[in-house]
């Protein structure tokens, strides 16, 4: 088994309108995958299906060889960073620590500091800042840190740099490249930036995949 996901006969519809139809798709594991396509082609829906936040009307999803059933425990192994992420109404440190707390993990402080370092957030400067004291780019980096702190098997990113300035785009991309090199993680990124996507990903999927 050398794939992270196997999607079989997937059909997803919003208000009876087919948004996504996939006959068969294998996503390789421990590599970076890009998703490219026009707006409305089902890219975000696809990521939400992979994150087990949405469920197909038909078909089956296999996650690392196992049929996806217990979504509650599967969601501990895969995480999604949405285009405009939501930060919890607490400090930066507490936001990043939250996934570790819900998993009742240890060494929380050290792991939060490690994640903050990866996304270039200085702990002394940002640790105690409240959610409303951050710029858009800083908030995006906090959200990314809260996704990677628990080292998921799969990291899904939906347009992670679309609304950011040059500096924040650079910092997020640098963090992802560093993560790709250090961790054996499957990273799936949706982006409109073809140049970056082809440099970052080992494989790019063009959407719409198959819509009838």
């Amino acid at each position: 088994m050398n794939y992270s996901y196997y999607l079989k006969n997937i059909l997803f519809a919003y208000n009876k309108k087919k948004v996504l139809q996939i006959r068969e798709l294998f996503l390789p594991k421990e590599t970076s995958l890009g998703i490219f396509g026009p707006n409305g082609s089902g890219k975000s829906t696809f990521l939400k299906l992979l994150a087990f936040l949405l469920f197909p009307e038909q078909g089956e999803i296999f996650f690392f060889g196992e049929r996806a059933r217990d979504v509650c425990s599967l969601r501990k192994e895969v995480t999604l960073l949405e285009q405009t992420p939501y930060l919890l109404k607490r400090s930066v440190f507490e936001n990043i620590a939250y996934p570790l707390q819900v998993r009742k993990e240890k060494n929380i402080e050290a792991r939060v500091l490690e994640a903050m370092e990866l996304v270039a957030l200085e702990p002394k400067k940002f640790g105690q800042r409240k959610w409303f004291e951050l710029s858009g780019g800083e908030a995006q980096r906090v959200a990314l840190a809260s996704r990677i702190v628990c080292k998921p098997r799969v990291l899904l990113l939906d347009e992670p740099t679309s609304n950011l300035d040059g500096e924040n785009t650079f910092l997020i991309r640098r963090a992802l490249t560093s993560l790709q090199e250090k961790e054996k993680m499957t990273i799936v990124v949706v982006s409109h930036d073809w140049d970056w996507l082809s440099a970052f990903s080992s494989q790019i999927y063009k959407f719409p995949l198959e819509i009838k």
Partner: peptide, 24 residues
């Protein structure tokens, strides 16, 4: 509206979703 999906994708179970939502 993003709160629920955020909590789920951060790994919260239904009880933790309830408590965190009340705290939010």
């Amino acid at each position: 509206k993003r709160l629920k999906s955020t909590l789920l994708t951060l790994g919260a179970n239904p009880r933790q979703v309830l408590l965190t939502t009340l705290w939010e």
